[in-house]
Design a protein around this nucleic acid. Structure first.
Length: 217
DNA sequence: AAGTAGTACAACCGCACTGGT
DNA sequence: CACCAGTGCGGTTGTACTACT
C-alpha cells in the first residue's frame, strides 16, 4: 500500500511563486503562525501544496533570513562544519544564523566545492585529492572507512546541538579521517561543569581530531 | 546582435522520521 | 505493535541570468 500524495497535484500551482502568493503566505503566517502546513494552503487561499508553502517560507520569506553574499568567515565555518558533519545541511544551517539549509547546500555545490578543488582538497572527504582518490580505492575493495569502523547494525540516537536528536547511520560514510565517535551517555554525564569549549566540542564532537581543548582528556 | 556555455539559486521530488491512534 | 498522516531533510532539476565567442 502506497503513501498518499502530500497534496492534490491536479489543483496546485507549481514553479516560481508570484508576489501575490508570497503576500498571501506572509500575511497568513503573520496572523496564524507556522504549523499545520498541510491545511495552510487552503486556509490561506493558495493553490500550492503544504510542502511548497513550507519551503517557500523557510527558504525565502522568513523575516530573520540574512540575504546576500556569504562572508569569508561563513565560508570557512561551512567548510569546517561540513568536514565534521557531512551533508547535514540542516545542522550546518543551525550554526549559521539567518542562513537556510537550502541556501547553504546551493552555496556549497556552486562555490565551496570549486574553492576546495582549487585548493587541491576533495570536497567530499576534505582530504588532499590524491589521498582521497587512494582512499576511495581502498574503500572499493575493503569497505573500510578509515579510522572509524562502525559495527552496529541499527542506527543509534545521539544528542547534539542543544537537545536535537539525530540518527547516526549504521555506516560512517563521511570524513573517514575524522573521529566522529560521538558521546552517548545518560543525561547526568552531560551535566559536567562547562569549561571553555573549542569549536569541535561546542558541536558535541568531543573526540574529534580538531578538538583543541581536550575536554575529555 | 545572436547563439552557446556556464553559473546561481529557487523549487520540486522522494524518502525517512516522528507522533498519534 | 502496526499503521498512517504530517513534517523535515537531502538530492536533483529547472530556469533565469551572465559571460563569452
Amino acid at each position: 500500500m502506497g503513501r498518499s500524495p502530500c497534496c492534490e497535484k491536479a489543483h496546485t500551482n507549481k514553479g516560481a511563486w508570484t508576489k501575490e502568493e508570497d503576500d498571501r503566505l506572509i500575511s497568513y503566517i503573520r496572523a496564524h503562525g507556522e504549523g499545520c502546513w498541510r491545511s495552510l494552503p487552503k486556509a490561506a487561499g493558495l493553490l500550492r501544496c503544504g510542502k511548497s508553502c513550507r519551503l517557500r517560507w523557510i527558504n525565502y520569506l522568513r523575516p530573520d533570513l540574512k540575504r546576500g553574499n556569504f562572508t569569508e568567515e561563513e565560508d570557512e565555518l561551512i567548510i569546517k562544519l561540513h568536514s565534521l558533519l557531512g551533508n547535514k545541511w540542516s545542522l550546518i544551517a543551525g550554526r549559521l544564523p539567518g542562513r537556510t539549509d537550502n541556501e547553504i547546500k546551493n552555496y556549497w555545490n556552486t562555490h565551496i566545492r570549486r574553492k576546495l578543488l582549487n585548493r587541491g582538497i576533495d570536497p567530499a572527504s576534505h582530504r588532499p585529492i590524491n589521498e582521497a582518490a587512494a582512499a576511495d580505492q581502498d574503500a572499493a575493495t575493503t569497505i573500510s572507512f578509515g579510522a572509524t569502523v562502525v559495527k552496529e547494525e541499527k542506527p543509534s540516537t545521539i544528542e547534539i546541538f542543544g537537545g536535537k536528536d539525530i540518527k547516526t547511520p549504521p555506516v560512517q560514510e563521511k570524513c573517514p579521517d575524522l573521529n566522529l565517535e560521538l558521546r552517548i551517555s545518560p543525561p547526568s554525564a552531560q551535566n559536567q561543569p562547562l569549561k571553555s569549549l573549542c569549536f569541535s566540542c561546542s558541536l558535541g564532537l568531543q573526540n574529534s581530531k580538531d578538538c583543541s581543548c581536550r575536554i575529555n582528556v
